[in-house]
Amino acid sequence: MIRALRQRRVAATLLFLAFALLPIIAAAAGDPYLVIVATRILAFAIAALALDLILGYGGMVSFGHAAYLGIGAYSVAILSGAGVTDLGAHLAAAVVAGALFALLTGAISLRTRGIYFIMITLAFAQMAYFFFVSLSAYGGDDGVTLAARSTVLGRDWLRDDRVLYYTALALLVGLYLLCVAITGSRFGRVLTGTRENPVRMEAVGFTPFRYQLTAFVISGAMTAVAGVMLANQASYVSPAFMNWHRSGELVVMVVLGGIGNLLGAIAGATLALLLEEWLAVLTDHWPLIFGTLLILVVMFSRDGLTGLFRGRRG
């Protein structure tokens, strides 16, 4: 176990280093579009990381996490529309709104288990989706184009794609380290225990619900942060951000990368979005190839990509 943690630290360092060098490589290769794609990858990596916290460690398969991407994205759109353009304010609003939505929906969803939990999280996300579809002040179904990206200290530094990219990377690294700390803490141990055997946890004196709900709230708030970055990357916000396909894609990213080790979620998001970019160039039927790959990874390595690197467990 200690060895696995050490391996993860090395792999994380290498992965983040590669991300840090990417804009330089993109500049050298004369392909600035790469930085924009990679910013999108980073935003989804944050969301997948947040999902892995509850899915991998808490055993809670949320099929509605796209709702939080939308909540984060609309935080940017709504505040910017009201003249508040500061990134800090956007992030704070997204975190609060995401946490509240998670608290409300989690408190209800967590009274169910298994397939019912999956369906209820999906239902809540659909409710959020249709709420924003009906929000005509923000374009309804069509969404709304942002006049500009968020500002920092009143300056429009994020207009530079590379600054936005590094901001997203800093958020990803920071949130990754936060998740590493959380999963290794007292709280993380209880959360993992409730995934393994909730009755056992009750029999030593824990009430699983409290810990699961807290993790759900943390995850929702983190995913909303991803939504803020996604809105800035696209300069555009629409209900499509919270479409249920998107929720499914987030689950796929986590499974593809390997559930329950945090880094896998980041790798999974990266690979899924790169494949989407590359395969879409090859053929319109790229989801067929992607689906086949996903099946192969899941069949041959229960731990996803991370399992392929680590070799089989136990």
């Binding site: 176990m1 709280f187 141990r189 209880v190 004196g205």
Partner: peptide, 25 residues
Amino acid sequence: FTVLDNVAVAVQARDGSSFRFLRSV
């Protein structure tokens, strides 16, 4: 979990709050 952690989590349940998020358990 390891054998030790199975028991340590039971100790943890009666020894202080488990709403601690950052320190390594």
